[in-house]
Simulated assay, not measured.
Amino acid sequence: MDISNMLRSDFYYELPQELIAQTPIEPRNASRLLKVDRRTGKCTHDRFYNLKEYLNPGDLLVVNDSRVLPARIYGEKADNGTFIEFLLVEQRGENEWEILCRPGKKAKIGTRFVFGGGILSAVITDVLEDGNRIAKFECEKGSFFATLDQIGQMPLPPYITEKLKDKERYQTVYSNEPGSSAAPTAGLHFTKEQMADIEAMGVNIAYVTLHVGLGTFRPVKEDRVLDHKMHREHYEIPERTAELINKTKAAGGRVIAVGTTSCRTLESVATFYKEIKPCEGYTDIFIYPGYEFKVLDGLITNFHLPESTLIMLVSAFLGYENTMNAYKVAVEEKYRFFSFGDSMFIS
């Protein structure tokens, strides 16, 4: 396709509403798996618990260990009890956060809000150009994160309308570093037992951290893809992970990213530093068809929204025609889509 004239509408596909998964499947790894050959586009239907049949000793899975915050909190204006909703977007300092809030007109600089009957309070300290606010929080007792766990709700995507019964089902089993506004959903399929089985067969598992921002849910509004500006997200690659990636590549093994967030972390570092090394920073990398991958040999991912930056990333790795065909097959075969949906493995 002509990259310079690539349109958002090029990445549209018809999705029946009933294929949008509303609840997580049990057990986690019972979800379906669409294995797609990157060279030929051939599709194979399987279950996620059979993932190891497509892995080789010496491969490396790179997973994102970010943990989702129960980032949606409901409270009231301290002086008159007016309802307010906060959604934490990004930590800016100690107990200081960038937030989305509604109704926004109630959140002027200096306004104080209380949550959970007063165990948490916040004062608006700044209003940003895009309308987001900066809020400084204070806890009645205990830590901010412990208080958030007590009163906060999971920030489920807007297309999920069912109430989540168990908060942990919107976390990966290896989540460890709090900070995400949305789950790195490709990893939701793994069980601890499955990960142990995979390691036992000689496949290594390495961890990166990328805190998933709300930009994940923001649609591409520009008609021309190249006019879209990506949100930024904080990432970290620890020393052990950098070593494992470099050793795997040197030995001829495959580096397989679990999720677009792991993919964006690896490709950001390789693009910026021309190598994989221990580091941390912010990335706003936008991966779309025409991008030359520097690290990835495989990608495990869910099925993404039409016209989203995520389906564009998949198209860059799998190829545009192969991607749109795989999605067509998934719709015809009634796979479950989006955050709680089924999985695709591209290699």
Score class of each variant (00 low, 15 high):
residue 293 F to A: 04
residue 198 I to G: 10
residue 287 I to T: 08
residue 294 K to V: 06
residue 245 I to H: 03
residue 243 E to T: 13
residue 282 Y to E: 15
residue 227 D to H: 12
residue 240 R to P: 05
residue 224 R to D: 13
residue 226 L to C: 07
residue 207 Y to R: 15
residue 248 T to C: 11
residue 243 E to I: 10
residue 212 V to I: 12
residue 203 V to S: 10
residue 269 V to N: 07
residue 255 V to C: 12
residue 216 T to K: 00
residue 231 H to C: 04
residue 264 R to Y: 06
residue 294 K to C: 01
residue 273 Y to S: 13
residue 244 L to E: 09
residue 272 F to P: 01
residue 239 E to D: 14
residue 213 G to P: 12
residue 218 R to H: 09
residue 236 E to V: 06
residue 219 P to H: 09
residue 242 A to P: 06
residue 276 I to N: 01
residue 227 D to V: 00
residue 237 I to R: 11
residue 224 R to H: 13
residue 238 P to T: 01
residue 241 T to M: 00
residue 229 K to N: 14
residue 273 Y to H: 15
residue 216 T to N: 03
residue 261 T to N: 11
residue 227 D to Y: 04
residue 256 I to D: 15
residue 208 V to I: 14
residue 274 K to M: 06
residue 210 L to E: 10
residue 265 T to V: 06
residue 277 K to T: 09
residue 247 K to Y: 04
residue 260 T to M: 05
residue 217 F to T: 14
residue 261 T to V: 00
residue 288 Y to I: 10
residue 206 A to E: 12
residue 201 M to P: 01
residue 200 A to R: 13
residue 271 T to D: 11
residue 280 E to C: 10
residue 236 E to N: 08
residue 291 Y to D: 09
residue 285 I to T: 03
residue 225 V to Y: 01
residue 266 L to G: 12
residue 221 K to M: 10
residue 287 I to N: 11
residue 235 Y to V: 11
residue 272 F to N: 14
residue 221 K to Q: 14
residue 213 G to T: 08
residue 244 L to T: 02
residue 232 R to P: 00
residue 279 C to V: 15
residue 291 Y to V: 07
residue 242 A to N: 09
residue 251 A to M: 10
residue 289 P to L: 04
residue 201 M to E: 11
residue 242 A to R: 08
residue 267 E to R: 03
residue 284 D to W: 04
residue 216 T to G: 01
residue 236 E to A: 14
residue 287 I to Q: 08
residue 250 A to P: 03
residue 242 A to K: 06
residue 283 T to Q: 03
residue 216 T to M: 00
residue 213 G to D: 12
residue 244 L to Q: 08
residue 231 H to Q: 09
residue 245 I to P: 03
residue 288 Y to D: 02
